[in-house]
């Protein structure tokens, strides 16, 4: 573990001289626990479709996937006919659309497959064909 940490540190130093000028907090490279999610592009620490939805997606699409309306709107994912083709939500999560950022760097293939399969079978959606990890990988 320690060897990994130092190797990661040296790699970063070699690649990123800007780091020395940063005003940021002071993580260990192989951060664990709370520190593991502090980085701008840190990996989301959620396992399983429901956990990913509730940990990330519901920030905008809301609990219950009901969406929200202000000056602009977040689309509801409940009873959403756009989910009929599994590739569509995969593509949106990877690449983003309009204001929605892409999450290809923060979610891995399994997390994306899991959350797509979860949303497509919950919130009044009944699309039972599953998206696989390989499907997601192929769309990256």
């Amino acid at each position: 573990m320690k060897r990994f940490a130092i190797a990661a540190l040296l790699t970063t130093l070699a690649a990123a001289p800007a780091l020395a000028d940063s005003a940021g907090p002071a993580p260990k490279p192989a951060a664990r626990g709370a520190a593991a999610i502090s980085g701008f592009m840190a990996h989301f620490p959620f396992e399983g479709g429901q956990a990913v939805y509730e940990g990330v997606c519901q920030g905008c699409h809301m609990p219950g996937a009901v969406g929200a309306v202000g000056a602009g709107a977040y689309p509801a994912l409940a009873k959403d006919e756009n989910l009929e083709t599994g590739a569509y939500p995969v593509l949106l999560i990877l690449k983003g659309q309009k204001a929605m950022p892409g999450f290809s760097m923060q979610l891995d293939d399994k997390q994306i497959a899991d959350v797509v399969n979860y949303v497509r079978t919950h919130f009044g959606n009944h699309y039972s064909d599953k998206v696989s990890v390989d499907d997601v990988k192929a769309m990256r």
């Binding site: 970063t12 990123a16 800007a18 005003a23 940021g24 993580p27 701008f40 592009m41």
Partner: peptide
């Protein structure tokens, strides 16, 4: 590394404030 991958690496390792400063630098 491309700037973008560099930035994401900095972000992962050094946290968001570091990311911001790196963005400034780049």
């Amino acid at each position: 590394p491309s700037r973008r991958s560099l930035l994401s690496m900095i972000g992962v390792v050094a946290g968001s404030a570091a990311m911001y400063h790196a963005m400034t630098e780049l």
